[in-house]
Design a protein around this nucleic acid. Structure first.
Lengths: 194, 194
DNA sequence: CACCCATGTTAATGGTCACTAACATCGGCG
DNA sequence: CGCCGATGTTAGTGACCATTAACATGGGTG
């Protein structure tokens, strides 16, 4: 049990592949690159996944599930819509700062998935967005849902910019900056498109 | 001169390739797909570009140059930093709404370029960012440049989210929404990371 | 101790492309 | 009119690369 840690290699593959995919893009990463990154050769991958595409699928489904679940939990545990919104912002920012590779791959490689995986990931993403929209619609009951949805996508773009600002600022500072900007963007006076 | 419009096919190739690259990613788009999109076969491309990579290079260099040039002009022609900032926001939003494919490809396919093209594009991008930073540093002279740079990247993420919200809102409404959110994010009280 | 399963390794194999060759077509200009 | 350059077309061709085959290896368990 200790000498052969269950799922260890599998987890390593998921992590290494995510890094590589984020950096070079799915098609440009070779099976052998992934193997080398975890100390094996390429074909060893097939002992853990049906293939390269399935590996990408596992990565994307996992991220989407984690984001959606975290969103649900944060909202459920928050004391009112204002607190919920702050919690969502903090949670997403933490995720984006901790896992820039996953954030990057998440919205870049969707089209390389199986129809089925793609549907699944999209459903989860939609659920996460609706979590945000639900909270926002409480703080701005006068703003129509489509506008809120667009605003949420825009804020995601803002928060997910992290990979572009790699290392420009210390992490805590970056987190504060993103929180302030995100909150301001969502509370902004023109958010109803007047 | 009229019967054989100079560079017409070339321009069509640039546009069609940009759409396809944005939709499926550089590596997944075949020479033949690009040819078919402009009413020829694949290899006809070589009459206009040295190869697929050079075509991508032409696209990215062109976008970067247009953005940088427009940024320079807008700032130069603006009446004070406040007006300059609004002009930059409007200009970028217009671009993002008019050319979502270019916006998408712009920051997704950089690593498929020649070293030389990549350097050139990056230099242009940097210049554009510094244009924004320069304006911002006038409206918030107390905020250090690295923070402003991170804030600018974040606002780009926000504005460039357009491709994710395709058709959710009428164009003018979307433009207003993005302008309001972008301005709020950049004016936000926490933009100094307090 | 012997067997077996989990994991790996190296060497095919087969498909998929970008790119090149060889061969049209056609409009303008001498 | 006949040549020429620009632009295309249809067949290679040669790399590249995911996947599979065939063959280890080594630790845990009966």
């Amino acid at each position: 049990m200790v000498s052969r840690p269950a799922g260890d290699r599998r987890t390593a593959l998921l992590g290494a592949a995510a890094e590589l995919f984020a950096e070079r893009g799915y098609r440009s990463v070779l099976i052998d690159d992934i193997g080398r990154a975890v100390g094996t050769t390429g074909p060893a991958l097939y002992r853990h996944f049906p293939g390269k595409q399935a590996l990408l699928g596992a990565i994307l489904v996992d991220v989407s599930e984690r984001l959606a679940a975290r969103g649900r939990d944060l909202v459920a545990g928050a004391d009112g819509p204002g607190a919920a919104l702050t919690a969502l912002l903090r949670g997403h920012i933490e995720f984006a700062l901790d896992e820039p590779a996953l954030i990057t791959v998440h919205d870049r490689e969707l089209h390389h998935l199986t129809e089925e995986d793609r549907r699944r990931v999209r459903r989860l993403q939609r659920g996460y967005v609706e979590e945000w929209v639900g909270v926002l619609s409480q703080t701005r009951p006068d703003t129509p849902a489509p506008v809120l949805r667009a605003a949420v996508h825009a804020v995601f773009g803002l928060l997910n910019s992290t990979p572009h600002s790699r290392g420009e600022l210390p992490r805590a500072h970056m987190a504060d900056l993103l929180l302030g900007m995100g909150a301001a963007a969502l509370a902004g006076p023109a958010a109803d498109g007047s």
